[in-house]
């Protein structure tokens, strides 16, 4: 084996001068104008790119040129994760055999999927619909098409809407109570039920409510689910979401239960609110982190079944 090699360049100065003839010439001329044409064979097929002859029979083609595309369908492809200097694109791309719409043969070209990586993109497959991306400056070369790219099948539509919200009178008061570590509700003067949190009205009777009632931060689990889907407000997975009937309230509220393994939570279990440290309180229901068992005996299901 020789220990050294020596560089050698084979390059015809100025480049070869290729005459193209009438058929390829027509193709390249049309390409320079941003169109793709094929030629019809005697058998009626359309060759793209066109040749002077029918590759099946060797017979001369007709003189009928047909505009094809602009879209085409990928018939086969390869994926180039590490392009060479001679490749048309300098980032990962596909080589594709593309049958232009209206053509009976396929054109080889580069296909840019706008995606990179060692693995072929998932959408790269036979049947993918593609279109040429023409260069702005064209000279009459098959590289007047910079590459092909997929047809547009989706676009991302960012939307951002800004609001200025007010909680409303009743919820505002409820949240004020929360900021003081109190859980407030309203008693309906028609049905005498205590609704927590209050809404300023009774949904059953359709009347305004104003009589404020403070309820305890202890209550009973009426029913629950063990959630294995993470929730930003839950400490961990699994976590328990439970309906809790606070002592003094007539409607159960949905809240987290923690401080006990999920598989030990029970219907009728007695719980107490676990408040955040007072210095972290705001006007938020989030002042209550979750509910934890009090250790009192469970309430029989019969006593709570009308709240489920």
């Amino acid at each position: 084996m020789p220990s050294e090699t020596t560089a050698h360049v084979l390059e015809f100065p100025g480049g070869y001068t290729r005459s193209v003839g009438p058929v390829i010439g027509r193709f390249l001329t049309e390409l320079r104008s941003g169109r793709v044409v094929g030629v019809r064979t005697a058998a009626g097929r359309v060759l793209v790119p066109p040749t002077e002859y029918d590759p099946d029979t060797g017979d001369a083609v007709t003189d009928e040129f047909v505009e094809v595309g602009p879209a085409g369908t990928v018939e086969s492809w390869s994926w180039v994760p590490n392009p060479r200097a001679t490749h048309p694109l300098d980032r990962p791309f596909a080589w594709a055999l593309i049958r232009m719409d209206g053509a009976d043969t396929a054109l080889l070209h580069a296909l840019d999927l706008g995606e990179e990586g060692p693995e072929p993109p998932r959408r790269l497959r036979a049947g993918l619909r593609v279109r040429p991306r023409f260069r702005a400056e064209r000279v009459g070369s098959v590289r007047d098409i910079e590459c092909f790219e997929p047809e547009v099948t989706m676009y991302v539509a960012p939307t951002r809407l800004e609001y200025r919200l007010h909680p409303g009178r009743a919820l505002d008061r409820f949240l004020e109570g929360m900021s003081e570590g109190r859980i407030l509700g309203h008693r309906c003067e028609v049905c005498d039920k205590v609704l927590v949190p209050m809404k300023g009205l009774c949904p059953m009777d359709g009347v305004p409510t104003t009589e404020e009632v403070e309820v305890a931060d202890t209550g009973t689990v009426t029913t629950f689910a063990v959630n294995n889907i993470p929730d930003p407000r839950a400490p961990e997975v699994p976590f328990v979401s439970a309906y809790i009937l606070l002592d003094g309230a007539d409607v159960a509220m949905l809240a987290l239960v923690s401080g006990i393994p999920a598989d030990q939570v029970r219907l009728g279990m007695r719980v107490r609110a676990a408040w955040k440290p007072r210095e972290e309180w705001g006007r938020s229901i989030g002042n209550i982190r979750w509910f934890e068992p009090t250790g009192e005996p469970d309430v029989p299901f019969d006593a709570i079944k009308d709240y489920t």
Partner: peptide, 14 residues
């Protein structure tokens, strides 16, 4: 006016 939509609606229904 510091009312929720429901609070705003209730009086007209009444």
């Amino acid at each position: 006016a510091g009312l929720s939509e429901t609070e705003m609606l209730l009086p007209v229904i009444q």
